[in-house]
Amino acid sequence: MIQLSLIGIGTGNPDHLTGEARRVIGAADLFLIPRKAAKSDLADLRTQIIGAVRADANIAYFNMPVRDDALPYLDRVDAWHDEIARIWTDTIAAQQAVRHVALLVWGDPSLYDSTLRIAARLSPAPEVRVIAGITSVQALTAAHAIPLNTLNAPVTISTGRRLRDHGWPAGCETLVVMLDGGCAFQDLDPDGYDIWWGAYLGMAEQITEHGRLSDVCARIIARRAAARAAHGWIMDTYLLRPVRDLPRN
């Protein structure tokens, strides 16, 4: 049976690797690294992280398939996951004497990441091991030096798509938004919310903004567009709170 290790690597900073992650990187027979045409430096970052731990790594690069935009969203993602699983299976099968395969996952495999769902589609089924990593949520609150929750209150973690389509969640005091390529926060009342935003969190390119939406919304959108144009990709996360629910001492 193949052992498949999904290694959380934080947000691209080699210092985010845990000791456990380093040990597993040192033990793997094969690393699968995806390539995207517009995000080649993400593959380079993964390669550099592996290379900082060991110089003899066996790395297989593969091209990520493209989603079929003609399909409904859930069907589109489902078919995309099937295709990725097929590519993993074929790539592993092309190697000889491989028993321990590893993938480096941005953030942590448990949070808004589909690596575990893709791994469940492999046949024959591997033995899956997850090595926890620093999430973008942790990196965001650390960058702004703020607590994640208000006093004795829950936190909702959601996506830009849901914020755009359904608005502010009922009863929510703190909303963390991920996977938002459309800046859904601009659809909220700009005077009713404060935002803590960050991109490339934990990396040398890190940029952050904080303030009332009415004051920083346009600046975030402009900085985000400029950073994406400069790097060819962007990963950003933000936290929102209604003005009445600011953190209490």
Results as ranks from 00 to 15, higher is better:
Ile9Ser: 11
Asp15Arg: 14
Leu17Cys: 08
Gly19Ser: 07
Gly19Val: 04
Arg22His: 12
Ile25His: 00
Gly26Cys: 01
Leu30Pro: 01
Ile33Ser: 08
Ile33Gln: 07
Ala38Cys: 08
Arg46Trp: 08
Ala55Pro: 01
Asp56Ser: 01
Ala60Arg: 06
Tyr61Ala: 10
Asn63Lys: 11
Tyr73Arg: 10
Trp80Met: 12
Asp82His: 13
Ile87Arg: 13
Thr91Met: 10
Thr91Gln: 03
Ala94Thr: 12
Gln95Asp: 03
Gln96Val: 14
Arg99Asp: 15
Gly107Asn: 08
Gly107Gln: 04
Pro109Cys: 12
Ser114Ala: 15
Leu116Asp: 07
Leu122Cys: 01
Pro124Ala: 02
Ala125Pro: 03
Ala132Thr: 13
Val137Asn: 09
Val137Trp: 06
Thr141Asp: 06
Pro154Tyr: 09
Val155Trp: 02
Thr156Lys: 02
Ser158Cys: 04
Asp165Cys: 12
Cys172Met: 03
Met178Gln: 06
Leu179Asn: 13
Leu179Thr: 07
Asp180Pro: 08
Gln186Phe: 02
Asp191Lys: 07
Ala199Asp: 05
Gly202Tyr: 12
Glu205Gly: 02
Thr208Asp: 01
His210Thr: 13
Arg212Asn: 06
Leu213Ser: 04
Ser214Met: 04
Asp215His: 10
Arg219Lys: 13
Ile221Lys: 02
Arg224Ser: 14
His231Glu: 06
Gly232His: 10
Met235Pro: 07
Asp236Cys: 10
Asp236Phe: 00
Thr237Glu: 11
Thr237Ser: 12
Tyr238Trp: 03
Arg241Asn: 11
Arg244Tyr: 14
